[in-house]
């Protein structure tokens, strides 16, 4: 098999907050092939946004990578210098779109300025010494806007972000992030702040453009329903760890982890009419006070003694299907019926 586009290996990361260490990512292992869409799902505070930021090394100052590697096209991004990251990776090979389009664009500069600045950086990093005129990048910016479905891009390019709706701002971001030079898009809750119809449109735009350019996508969301539409592979995270990972069909069809099963059961579309939706009791524990053993055991109705003592390793339970549940590993496949 050829080298995967992205291989994250044993990635472990702490947040140091006033002397308290919080393990935000714990031994994260996964690969992403060219053109693949990997959906990362989990409740708030499970480390999924940290993952995207860690890949691009845009972490807040309190974060510290303890060990592990992020191989992108065979190179460990964690070993690159800051200059190499800027010159070759950020905004070129790997781009990112963020959760809150309201704040992701600079409020006091025109869309034109922000897009042409980025296009100029991209161009100069690819072709050192390039001295094209502003008009060149402006045209390029208008093309990108057109591509993302913004009406009247020639006029809109001179607008300020506050003159755009949230969905349109996210389109602008997508226009900045998706081009033929990009290999990997990190989408961090890209549609969470948008209303449902706009969300569907934006997701379709991301998937269509990614498919057109052969871009792989790491799509972080707390909405498993969205992933049913767009992801090839799914990764379920909880309190900084991977709980389950596999092809979408496998994971949706026969979840091997009680947590995944619970998330799926709490989806409206999956429930028979008239039944109450499942709500998992409790909440994600604070990262500096994780329970012993399996971090999910206090909320898991299936938990046994062993779950309170042993940390379950992520194990391949079927070909290409990984799960981190001791009970599943002990007894083999079973139906996790929460209700």
């Amino acid at each position: 098999m050829s080298e995967p586009l992205l291989e994250v290996s044993n990635l472990t990361l702490d947040y140091n907050l006033g002397g308290r260490k919080m393990r935000a990512l714990d031994r994260i292992n996964f690969t992403l092939e060219k053109g693949e869409v990997l959906g990362v799902a989990g409740e708030s505070g499970c480390g999924k946004s940290t993952l995207g930021l860690a890949i691009l090394r845009l972490l807040p100052r309190v974060a510290e990578i303890r060990r592990g590697a992020v191989f992108f096209k065979g190179t460990d991004l964690l070993k690159l210098s800051e200059e190499q990251m800027e010159l070759e990776i950020r905004g070129q090979e790997i781009t990112m779109i963020f959760q809150n389009p309201q704040n992701a664009l600079n409020p006091v500069f025109k869309i034109e300025t922000q897009m042409t600045d980025i296009l100029r950086v991209q161009d100069r990093n690819q072709n050192p010494g390039s001295r094209k005129r502003h008009q060149h990048y402006r045209k390029q910016a208008i093309e990108r806007l057109k591509l993302t479905g913004i009406a009247d891009p020639e006029a809109r390019v001179s607008n300020y972000p506050f003159e755009f709706s949230g969905g349109m701002k996210q389109r602008v971001m997508i226009g900045m992030a998706l081009s033929s030079g990009t290999s990997l898009l990190l989408a961090d809750e890209a549609t969470t702040a948008l209303d449902v119809t706009i969300e569907a449109q934006i997701n379709k735009l991301i998937i269509d453009l990614a498919a057109e350019y052969g871009i792989s996508v790491l799509y972080v969301t707390h909405n498993l329903g969205v992933l049913a539409e767009m992801a090839d592979k799914i990764m379920i995270m909880y309190a900084g760890r991977i709980f389950e990972m596999g092809e979408k069909e496998m994971l949706f069809g026969s979840p091997r982890h009680p947590y995944s099963a619970a998330l799926l059961e709490s989806l409206p579309s999956r429930q028979k009419k008239g039944r109450r939706l499942l709500s998992i009791p409790g909440f994600v524990p604070p990262l500096d006070r994780l329970p012993k053993g399996c971090s999910f055991h206090p909320r898991c109705v299936f938990a046994e003694d062993i779950c309170r003592k042993q940390v379950p390793p992520l194990t391949e339970v079927a070909s290409g299907h990984w799960s981190a549940c001791l009970l599943d590993q002990k007894r083999g496949r079973q139906k996790w019926q929460w209700t």
Partner: peptide
């Protein structure tokens, strides 16, 4: 956030 965006796109 918008500063993080600029950093993500390698603005110097």
């Amino acid at each position: 956030d918008y500063i993080r965006t600029a950093r993500a796109f390698a603005v110097p």
